[in-house]
Design a protein around this nucleic acid. Structure first.
Lengths: 358, 358
DNA sequence: TCTATTGGTTGGAGCGCTCCAATGCTGTAA
DNA sequence: TTACAGCATTGGAGCGCTCCAACCAATAGA
């Protein structure tokens, strides 16, 4: 249970501790003979450098801290993939911590991450107050993903929710829908831009926006649909604030004897792996998640290397993924004289694009 | 960007560095006067202890390393919740790293985690070879979740896949099914016990097992169903190796014009959040995931505190969650003279149990 | 009075490493 | 020969902290 130290390796290889240090860091100014002797000794002892001692002595760190607000959401997993890819490429390791969507727990996670004195910090959709983020940003470079900030030392990477919502509305309008409701995400991150984008797009088409208060959960989506039905205010199409909400909406519609998309079209947001399941086959808005991660890591490493001081605000353009939950509205179908078969054709689930789901 | 050190606090509070150290560690042998002076100085300077220096000096660690094999799988998120709960309770922090189901990347993640010299390591369903795990176990306490090990210094926490499969078979048999196929998980973790449990349960009921080779993905589930249909070997009920596979199977069944559960019943495994969605409403086998995490953390902390030397092998009993994808078989319905309405009643999705999905 | 005892406080050593100035070595030019 | 590179190698200081033995009152016991 006791790991060998650099001293042990030096002794075994018959060189000084400093020489071992040079070898471990891949310095070019070590003779081939000594290098191999050191590596051999290290191998035999099962030695590997002590990251903390190294970081303490060098007053630098090759670790990037990543705080994931919610591990349950696969969205973040893909962002982490992007971060990991870039970090690894540039010789950095990442350590992750999670806040579980609770500000208190997130604060603790932040503290814990900071106590390792990482080179920088990436926060994925954090829920802690801006002041806490500002405080962290005084100590090290910080990049925010899926949350905005006005602090000039903080970089941000977001998707353009307004554009995403507009894409969805345009798609539905082009199918012939005129009554399109938005189940909104309330106080949730990014709910604002999505709602604004929806309202603007509706108005641009000369249509009346219908915002229904909801949340980022499937239960909330179902509730919203039930209340629309109860109020006799059900439109021909629904734009949900995210995929979970959309799936809940679809359930409630089907429970009420309505068919999706024959009677009502539904569009989600986020293109989670859930949406890609053949069984769900949800038309949705895709965010380039891995790209979020890559850009965040790039921005952070630029700061770490002090290559840049001005803040960067990435605003990525989302894209529309058409699957099986959108089709022309029933009225339009009737009036346009389209055959039911054609509409049903549009509703046919497409083959699943995600093969690697587990 | 430069954090204050203990020395700075000591200077400001007019005490020695050692006294600050005592205050920071909450020692009782510090006078109230000095304590508050130190805390005030620390507060004003924005000081917080340097975890690495602390761990280096004390030769102990209050960090538990957690390696999540696949961040995309919400299964692990709940296990992490359980770990986090126990760890926090006992004053430990956790750092997470991910292997992305690739042995090479996982190995790197392991190295990275080890370089922080954590007090112990929890590996969630790792795919690295057993030798790599054994090597790690020589350096610190290791607990495996959802993977077994024969190494006596390694504790394990698993679900009893044989029991789970039996529960599913018993449920289907009690509904009247006699032809039940198992879409198996191939080389996947825990696929073996599930397959064995299925075969044993079928034989116990005097039925003929029908194992169809498949994988832990929805695409594989769909493929397996298509091949069963092509071979004209479709049974009245399906036990999938996991929920994703089950959802793929359901899609393929519906594509073929069959209704679930009216024509074919389907049971999943894992009770992922996916299964709980109203829209999916999958009958499945639940594993107490948070409990996995809690037990793993408990076991690890016992080792860390050297309270125990003999290995612990937790084998948790899963439970059946009946939702909307299982019902009596069509044949049984006919012969037993049950009304179609009754059978349809059994198929009605239950209200969603997971409210907090996002 | 002197000696323990107790509670609070301190300086110094050292954790495993990096960094730097200094030290040997060659080999080559003066 | 001496001088001076240039390269490989080394000892020592120090990163921010903990731990320990020592210390210093102040009080209690003999």
């Amino acid at each position: 249970m006791v790991r060998p130290t650099m001293e042990d390796v030096a002794l075994k290889a018959g060189v000084s501790r400093a020489l071992v240090s040079l070898v471990m860091r891949g310095s070019p100014k070590v003779s081939e003979m000594r290098r191999s002797a050191v590596l051999k000794a290290a191998e035999e002892l099962g030695y590997s450098p002590h990251a903390m001692a190294r970081s303490l002595a060098s007053r630098t760190s090759t670790v990037l801290g990543v705080m994931v607000s919610d591990l349950h959401n696969a969205f973040f997993a893909e962002v982490v993939d992007g971060i990991d890819e870039v970090a690894r490429d540039q010789g950095f390791d990442i350590i992750i911590n999670t806040g579980g969507r609770s500000p208190a727990r997130e604060r603790r996670a932040l503290e814990s991450l900071l106590s390792f004195r990482p080179a920088g910090l990436i926060l994925l959709s954090p829920v802690v107050p801006a002041t806490a983020i500002g405080k962290a940003a005084e100590q090290l470079p910080v990049v925010l993903v899926a949350r905005s900030s006005r602090v000039s030392s903080v970089d941000t990477v977001n998707d353009d929710g307004e554009v995403g919502a507009r894409l969805a509305v345009d798609h539905l309008v082009s199918l012939g829908h005129r009554r399109i409701a938005h189940l909104d995400g309330g106080e949730g991150t990014q709910a604002g831009p999505r709602r604004r984008g929806y309202v603007a797009a509706m108005e641009a088409h000369g249509l009346v926006p219908q915002v229904v208060s909801s949340e980022y959960t499937d239960a909330a989506g179902a509730r919203a649909i039930r209340s629309l039905i109860a109020d006799d205010a059900l439109p021909t199409a629904i734009l949900s604030c995210n995929d979970f909400n959309a799936v809940g909406a679809i359930s409630a519609l089907e429970d009420a004897g309505l068919r999706v998309p024959a009677d009502v079209s539904v569009v989600g947001y986020d293109n989670t792996s859930l949406a890609a399941l053949r069984h769900v086959s949800l038309t949705t808005i895709d965010q380039p998640r891995a790209e979020f991660g890559r850009l965040a890591a790039d921005a952070l490493l630029q700061r770490v290397r002090e290559e840049r001081a001005e803040p960067v605000r990435h605003l990525l353009t989302p894209s529309l993924v058409v699957r099986g939950t959108t089709a022309p509205p029933a009225t339009s179908r009737r009036s346009s004289g389209r055959l039911p078969g054609e509409a049903a054709g549009a509703a046919k689930p497409r083959p699943n694009e995600h093969g690697g789901l587990r």
